[in-house]
Nucleic acid binder design. Sequence first.
RNA 1: GAGGUUGUAGCUCAGCAGGUUAGAGCGUCGGAUUGUGGUUCCGAAGGUCGGGGGUUCGAGCCCCCUCUUCCUCCCCA
Length: 448
Amino acid sequence: MSKPSIPEGTRDFGPEQVRKRNYIFDTVRTVFAKFGFQPLETPAMENLSTLTGKYGDEGDKLLFKILNNGDYLSKADEQALANRDSNKLISSIAKRGLRYDLTVPFARYVVMNRGTLSFPFKRYQVQPVWRADRPQRGRYREFFQCDADVIGSESLHYEAELAQIYDEAFQELKLPVTIKINHRKVLFGIAEAAGIADKFMDMTVAVDKLDKVGIEGVRKELSERGISESAIDTIEKILASPDLSSLKPVFANSPTGLEGLDEIEKVFKYLNAAPLTNEIQFDITLARGLSYYTGCIFEVIASGIKMGSIGGGGRYADLTGVFGVPGLSGVGISFGADRIYDVLEELNLFPESLSESVKLLLISFDEPSFEYAFQCATKLRKLGVSTEIYPDPGKLKKQFEYAAKRQIPFVAIAGESEMANGTLNLKNQENGEQQELTPEKIAELLNA
RNA sequence: GAGGUUGUAGCUCAGCAGGUUAGAGCGUCGGAUUGUGGUUCCGAAGGUCGGGGGUUCGAGCCCCCUCUUCCUCCCCA
C-alpha cells in the first residue's frame, strides 16, 4: 500500500483555508446579490457534446473526459482503436466531461429553461471548474470561479454594472486592482485598418503579448504569422496611440472598429457618473477569450503583485446560438477565487477575525465537575455561545494550552466551588482577567 | 501537450568520490508544576530518504521508469 495522494493540481483545504475561502465567496456573493443576480448551480459533469467546440481547439484538449461506465471498450470505435487515434476514439468511450467554465453550462441552462425564465436573466454561480492544464503558480486543475452573467439584453449599462461589481467586490476585499477593458470590434478594427482582416486571430494573439514581449516581440510574432511589414507598421502605429479619441481617425475606414470605440465610450460615460474606487483603463492590447466573446472584454489585474489575471469576462452576442436558440446576447464576468486567495494571502490582506472559531472552552477537574461543565455547555449553546468542552478533565495546564493553541478567546473553569454556586470561572485569555459568573451572565457578556 | 526543475521526521532544511545504527531546528507527546495558557528546563516518540526497477560487496547519493512540486512555452482564472 503506497502513501495516499491527491491528483496533480488539486488541493485539500484545511479549516483555516476554508474560512478564508468562504470570506472571498461570501464577499462576492453579497455584491452579486446586491446587483440583482440570482444564484444558480449546475452539475460538475456535463455531456461532452455540450462542452466540446466551445473553447477552441486548445480548450478541447484541456477538457477532462469521463470514461463511460461498464464495458466501455465493447462499444469503442474499432477503427479509431486500431489506429491508436485518441481524438477519434473519445466520443465512443466518453460521453461526459467535467465542466471547464461556468458560462457554457449557464448558456445550456438558459436554453433548456428559456420557457420559464424572464429576460434579461441575471444569475450568479460559485462553483469549481476543471482544466487539464499543467499546474503552475496560480494555476490549478481544479479551481473555483465566481461568475455573474446577464443574458437577454444588449444594454451596455450591464457592462458598466459589471465593472462596478468588480470594483465593489475588490474594494470589500481591500485588494487594489486595475480593471482593463477593450472591445473585440476594436481589435477587429486594427486588423481592418491594417488590411489583414483575414488574419484577425493571428494578429490578436500576437498583440495580446505586448506587455510581455515588447513591441519588437510583437512585430516578430506578427511577421512569423505571415503578416506583411506594412501591415505591421500600421498596427504598431495604432498600438502606440492607445487613447480612445485618437483612434477614431485611424478607424475611419473600419465601421466595425468605430462601433467598438463608441460602445466603450458609452460604458465609460455610464461609469463617469459614478466614479470607481479602483482604476479602470482602456487597453487596446487586451485580447483574451477568443472563443465566444464578441463585444466588450474585461480583465482584472491585482496591483503590485506578479500574478495572472484574477478576473475576466465580456460580452458574447450569441452563445445560446450553438444550443439552438439564437438572438440572446449575454455579458458576464468571472472572479478567479483561487488566484484571489493566493494574492490576498501573499499581501496579508485576510482579516484577523477569520481565525476565531469557538468562543468559549469549558474545562473541569474530575467526573462530577465535567458533568456540571457538560450541562453548562448545553445551556451556553442554547444561549447562542459557540462552546466547546475539553474531553479529559484533570490538569488545567493542558486544557489551557489547548485553548491557547486553538485561539479560543475565553476559558471557563468548572470546579467544586463553581458547582456549588451555579457559576463558572470565566477567564479572558487575552488579558488574563477572571471572574465568577453564571452561564446566563457569561452568554450576555460574550454575545454583546 | 513540449522543455526544464524539485521531492530526506508533521513543518523548514542538513547530509559524506557511493561506506556501519540518516541528523538539526521548530512542532507533537510526557514530566518538572495535583485550580490556571502561549516562557524556561528535562525526556520521549516520530523516517519504506516520493514510489518501482537496475548498477554495486554496499545506494538517501549513480542509471532507467513513474508520481509530485515549481518554472518557461501554449493557454488561461
